[in-house]
């Protein structure tokens, strides 16, 4: 169903900015397959506001089946923000009266989210060496937030995650020896269980707003939040698919393991061993490989016909190229 988002934003400007508030700008920023982001602004009775609308534009499909609702996302942002995490400020959670479907509005945070820019752009040269440490610090406030009641967040550990992705992999019918070997290897190296915490679930370069002056400005994209091993969030930002051409800098293509771990510990997080992070990093590559397969399948099965999908299917080999090296090195 195509929905007139612009008209919805006009209406929203009036609702949030008071009668007569006029939309001064509105533009779509990015198009995920199932999620839209719009930047908009209006001149309200209390002055100008610059906001972001995040809305679901398509029903859940298989690869997003794990995601939480946008209302839950908004609650998590508010809860972690109240606990000191760097997150955007939620301005409004949309309801039926807004006619925008499942959506919420946040105050716009300035900065850069494009992973490649963070890794390469000279504007970030000065702040870049501090980013891994800041990411470690940022995770502590998230992991120490008590999960808000009634959200029904899923709890996963290493075994559950391997089971889940192996099931998805088997269902694809693909036969990839490197993925098979990674499953077998990781099953033999599942870390001992720890007390589970709230996790962002998609903590990687690309989902964090960075400011060239201060570093981490806001942690975005909370749709995969769940409960689990705190090392999972660290392993994901170290997965090479999110290093944007700088495999020599393991944290997001901008930093070192030691700084990530030290930042975490210095901000009061329970110290985490590198081997534990490496387990989740390898599982991260495996998980991304399986996700790439399912995105191809969504094209083959006619769920979506975007040319993007089969080409993402060809990204499985990037995870395989990473996995063979990790298997050789060990955790």
């Amino acid at each position: 169903m195509e929905l007139d988002v612009r008209a919805g934003l006009e209406k929203l400007a009036g609702r949030l900015g008071g009668e007569g508030a006029k939309l001064t700008e509105a533009g779509r920023l990015s198009g995920g397959a199932s999620m839209e982001t719009w930047a908009f602004g209006f001149e309200g009775k209390d002055g100008p506001e610059r906001l972001i609308l995040r809305r679901r534009s398509a029903p859940f499909d298989e690869e997003t089946a794990r995601s939480v609702s946008l209302a839950t996302e908004a609650k998590l942002i508010q809860a972690t923000g109240a606990n000191g995490a760097r997150v955007p400020k939620v301005r409004h959670v949309c309801d039926d009266a807004d006619g925008l479907g499942e959506a919420y509005v946040m105050v716009r945070v300035d900065g850069e989210t494009l992973g490649k820019k963070i890794v390469q752009d000279p504007r970030f040269d000065a702040v870049r060496p501090s980013l891994a440490r800041q990411c470690g610090e940022s995770l502590v406030a998230i992991h120490k937030t008590p999960p808000p009641a009634g959200l029904n967040l899923k709890t996963v550990d290493g075994v559950a995650e391997l089971d889940r992705y192996e099931e998805v992999y088997r269902a694809t019918g693909a036969e990839r020896p490197i993925l098979e070997l990674a499953f077998q290897y990781l099953r033999k190296h599942v870390p001992t269980s720890v007390e589970p915490t709230l996790l962002h679930g998609d903590f990687r370069n690309g989902n964090i707003m960075f400011d060239p002056e201060v570093g981490v400005a806001a942690v975005l994209d909370w749709e995969l939040a769940h409960i689990g091993d705190p090392a999972e969030d660290m392993g994901w930002i170290c997965t090479n698919s999110w290093r944007f051409g700088r495999p020599d800098r393991p944290v997001g293509g901008f930093g070192e393991y030691a700084d990530l771990l030290a930042g975490y510990a210095s901000a009061g997080g329970r110290p985490i061993e590198l081997s534990r992070v490496r387990f989740w990093q390898m599982l991260g590559s495996l998980r991304w490989g399986v996700m790439c397969l399912t995105m191809y399948l969504s094209w083959r099965d006619g769920v979506t016909k975007s040319v993007e999908r089969p080409m993402i299917g060809r990204r499985v080999s990037e995870t395989e190229a990473d996995l063979v090296v990790l298997l050789e090195e060990g955790l």
């Binding site: 090479n240 051409g245 700088r246 495999p247 590559s285 060809r314 990204r315 080999s317 990037e318 395989e320 190229a321 990473d322 090296v325 990790l326 090195e329």
Partner: peptide, 13 residues
């Protein structure tokens, strides 16, 4: 395979 699919990709290591 990566040389076919994505030659600019820089693998782990």
């Amino acid at each position: 395979q990566i040389a076919i699919d994505q030659p600019s990709y820089k693998p782990e290591g």
